[in-house]
Write a protein that binds this DNA or RNA. Structure first.
Lengths: 218, 218
DNA sequence: GATTAAATTCAACGTTTGTTGAAATGTCAA
DNA sequence: TTGACATTTCAACAAACGTTGAATTTAATC
């Protein structure tokens, strides 16, 4: 009898998910082969197909695994900021803060697996092939709740202005999570693209100012 | 003698570039095969390897082809706004306008090839694998000129604030050029992700407000 | 311990991949 | 027309690809 046999079995499946998560984040769906995943997870080639049916099934499993956890965390952040606000509802700053904090705050950022997941989401979100479909599938209900809260804080906003503003916020967040290292080079090392807290602290007032400029009267 | 034989020869090379440009933009480097390119360009498979050496060589040629043209256009836009400004130099709004107008204005947006190129750039910019290296190689000198102009318009900016602000602008622009269709779905059709003029008109004041909020005293 | 099902390994399959050498065709100058 | 060179085609290569059926091992139940 080996040590902790059952745990060892379960671990294989998760090792495959972890390896696939990291590899898909770096090289994209087509840039990763099942053999790369199997080698990285130190597992037989056929095992990934056995557990997930196909390469696409593995990809979906990677995306799905953390989606619900993340949505719950972000929903809790939204509800907390709404509970703390007075009867007029939370400010634009508070909503954007709740939108970004679970992603860029110190909690999940300390976990290597979550970092890979965020990189993967960034890649998916800006891909023509997957961007529209997959993001909608996994994150639409939550995003719509944030947008409702923002609309309440910006009652005079024109729909087109409002949606473009959200799009700008989404784009800035996406590139930030992608960790391409470009900001490091442009700033000659003055800014580290891994400094998510620095990005987070600046993104909140920056985006709030943009929203107000475009979506408030006067 | 066939009609215009020499032009026919040249056209093959460009047909390959056009087909590769569109395909790489949609499916990424690894998602495209040389056979897909050859079929789409209606050209023999071996011809692409003959003209560009390798698949990677073809990819680089696609990126390089329009890079210089684009950089010249954007530099002209910057110099024009600087010439029109008084002795204090152009405003933040004017610089951001010059930064965005060649990309999102009606000029190049009317050309299908340029649209594919912008989608490709968006994909490259947010990819971990290529993002840092390739964007730096092709666009760094120009971007640095815009950043110098912005620094002059925001003399009190802290470097970290300033570079993160530029990063947010870059991210919003990148997602806008990617045409993922996500904004269409989130807005239930109220916003079309192809409406680059609508995005452009809103991005200028939005980003200028963010820059000022973060990089001006008081 | 025997039985059953799940997990894992092994070996191989039929495709598709990027690339290349040789042959054929086209172009242009002398 | 001849010769020289660039272009295009054809056929094929070895390698890598995702997937699968059969055999083996492991885990849990009786």
């Amino acid at each position: 009898m080996t040590k902790a046999p059952e745990k060892n079995r379960i671990r294989r499946k998760d090792r495959i998910l972890n390896a696939a998560e990291a590899l898909f984040a770096k090289h994209g769906f087509e840039g990763v082969s099942m053999r790369m995943v199997a080698d990285s997870a130190e597992v037989d080639l056929a095992l990934a197909s056995y557990h997930f049916g196909s390469k696409r099934g593995l990809f979906d499993a990677v995306l799905l695994r953390r989606a619900e956890v993340l949505n719950d965390l972000r929903l809790a952040a939204l509800e907390k900021c709404q509970a703390e606000a007075g009867g007029n509802g939370p400010s634009v700053e508070a909503i954007i803060d709740a939108f970004l904090h679970p992603l860029l705050g110190e909690g999940l950022q300390a976990d290597e697996g979550w970092l890979h997941y965020f990189e993967l989401i960034a890649q998916v979100n800006s891909s023509y092939e997957w961007g529209g479909q997959l993001m909608t599938k996994y994150f639409d209900p939550l995003v719509r709740k944030f947008m409702e809260a923002l609309k309440a804080a910006l009652p005079d906003a024109e729909p087109q202005d409002f949606y473009w503003c959200y799009h700008f916020l989404s784009g800035a967040l996406t590139l930030t999570m992608a960790h391409t290292g470009r900001i490091d080079q442009l700033s000659d090392g003055a800014v580290k693209s891994e400094d998510m807290v620095g990005a987070y602290e600046r993104m909140v007032p920056f985006m709030a100012a943009g929203f107000k400029k475009m979506c408030e009267k006067g």
